[in-house]
Design a protein around this nucleic acid. Structure first.
Lengths: 232, 232
DNA sequence: ACCTGAACACCGTTCAAGT
DNA sequence: ACCTGAACACCGTTCAAGT
């Protein structure tokens, strides 16, 4: 796809395909239309290229998604407290998770790609190393630290993925309809059999304060590991 | 597909297709070959039927999967303590999660279907109602209870899905190879840059004691909510 | 080195038709 | 009521070929 005209050199009408541009458009597409919209064929179409072109840059789709996660994790900026050995370990690990939470919240549709791919890129390994360092410093064993770090990561992924009120659809009308259907299904329940479900109904659908929601999620994890940490 | 012979009535060579048999085979297939093996076409093939036959029993694949989750949740048997108001609330909720954990562990490949589908069946609603009741009794608000119940569910799903050492593949040789590759990737890391990752390496690959693994996961959640519960 | 073209083996699903 | 047959609009991926 190059313009060839007499006397002029071939001028590519689009940017040359690179790993970076592919990952960029994959992430943008996921953000805009959800992860299920991210297909090899669709990405190729958007880039004005044949599907097979992508296979020169990535061996398969899985490696492409690894790239998306790597790009995501590289956007995490850690506050200074995380690196400061003098600050209490529970605060350091909260700040670490909080920093990741910020990035995940801006790309909620790819959040659940992260856990299994965490250790498949240097940004992910660096973050893991930091988390493990803090947990080891708190007295946890290597095995416990590994498990707890995994739980922490999954906790924040869960938070962004199930934030009440968030939707994948870009269509406002469909979105409203889903909400109505959900509400109707809950209202139809027997008040005698499901009093607590009905009382919590609004909590399932939309939460009043987003910050309260995320704070509670982080608190749950932090208080949990605080209780489990070996006494100093 | 019926044997018609002179003088004999038509005898169906296979069981009549029902929602139950379809859900049964879907769950069995997922257990045996992983969730990605569960396709409409494959299920139809196994039942000796046309793919379209399934659409008479389920409007689409999603509703079929709802059925799988419903069947799963219906297998949960709650210990008496869960129902006993006299027992401390933290112990009751631990037993509730433990009972679900038992069932999830026997069907790890479908575990991650559960969270979003929890409230789409009566077994799921019943379990949710119980959990919310216990949490409300501990002093949490309806909204907090909803969020915490979701975290509890996700915690046990996470535990069964990421249990170190578990694999989807049925092929022993491929399984060994994956393990070797994983180990090699970790061993290749710089000991200077990733000391803690390397120290925890075995914890990422396989855990020594399964019960210690699951106990720690449950403890983390229970201790978390215990710390967050309003003082009596 | 970078990309195209044709093909393969799959998906979920619709729609009309059979018994 | 319960199932078939043919078709549609998708997937990821391989393999050979072009420049």
């Amino acid at each position: 796809v190059a313009k060839k005209q007499a006397g002029f050199p071939a001028v590519p009408v689009r940017e040359r395909l690179t790993r970076e541009t592919i990952v960029d458009s994959a992430l943008a597409l996921a953000d805009a239309e959800g992860l299920e919209a991210v297909t090899i064929r669709r990405l190729a179409l958007d880039q004005g290229v044949t599907p097979m072109a992508l296979y020169w840059h990535f061996r398969d789709k899985d490696l492409l998604l690894n790239g998306v996660v790597e790009r995501l994790l590289s956007e995490v900026v850690l506050p200074d407290v995380v690196l400061d050995d003098a600050t209490p370990w529970d605060l350091r690990i909260r700040e670490l998770l909080g920093a990741m939470l910020v990035v995940l919240r801006s790309h909620p549709n790819v959040a659940d790609l992260v856990p299994v791919r965490m250790m498949l890129s240097t940004p992910g390994l660096d973050l893991t190393e930091r988390a493990l360092g803090v947990l080891r410093g708190a007295g946890f064993s290597p095995e416990q630290s590994a498990q707890l770090a995994g739980h922490g990561l999954s906790s924040i992924v869960l938070l962004v993925m199930t934030e009440p009120g968030r939707q994948v659809g870009t269509d406002a009308e469909v979105l409203e309809q889903q909400l109505r259907t959900k509400r109707a299904a809950l209202q139809a329940l027997s008040p005698d059999r499901y009093p607590n479900v009905l009382a919590s109904a609004e909590g399932f659908i939309a939460c009043g304060s987003a910050s309260a929601y995320f704070d509670l999620g982080l608190d749950l994890f932090i208080e949990g590991i605080r209780s489990l940490a070996p006494a100093k």
